[in-house]
């Protein structure tokens, strides 16, 4: 039932909610794993990340959409990363498994 939904919700530790395209969020193997199996997240389409604050999760959500928008393009302009968030975002990228260049066609 949740599979039918185009969007999923990401919830930060301080309660901020970000509604993102499911396809965009699937770039993260971590989220993909959460949504694929029979976890609560898969049924509700709501993923809670007590590890990250709203500021960081907002940037991550922004990246999901940035990636999704540019997934077929060459020579993509870089997304702005605020310097002060840099180190936290590296940790977030590690958590969300966003370190390798995401493959174009992951067999879903």
């Amino acid at each position: 039932m949740a599979d039918a939904c185009k969007y999923i919700t990401l919830v930060s530790s301080d309660g901020y909610e970000f509604v993102v395209l499911r396809d965009a969020a699937l770039v993260s193997p971590t989220i993909k794993g959460m949504l694929r199996s029979q976890f609560t997240e898969a049924q509700t389409g709501r993923c809670t990340f007590p590890e990250f604050s709203g500021v960081v999760l907002e940037k991550v959500a922004e990246y999901f959409h940035y990636w999704h928008r540019n997934r077929d393009r060459e020579d993509v302009p870089d997304m702005e990363i605020p310097v002060e968030l840099c180190l936290v975002l590296v940790q977030a990228a590690d958590y969300f498994n966003l370190d390798a260049r995401p493959s174009l066609r992951d067999p879903a």
């Binding site: 991550v60 990246y63 940035y66 990636w67 540019n70 997934r71 077929d72 393009r73 060459e74 993509v76 870089d78 997304m79 990363i81 310097v83 840099c86 180190l87 975002l89 590296v90 977030a92 990228a93 590690d94 969300f96 966003l98 370190d99 390798a100 260049r101 995401p102 174009l104």
Partner: peptide, 23 residues
């Protein structure tokens, strides 16, 4: 080279490298 955007990790690391004197 690859199609599509760089990974978030790469973006962060590039920003970090640019501002390494602040770290």
């Amino acid at each position: 080279y690859a199609l599509g955007a760089k990974s978030l990790m790469t973006l962060c690391i590039e920003t970090l490298a640019k501002n390494i004197d602040l770290a």
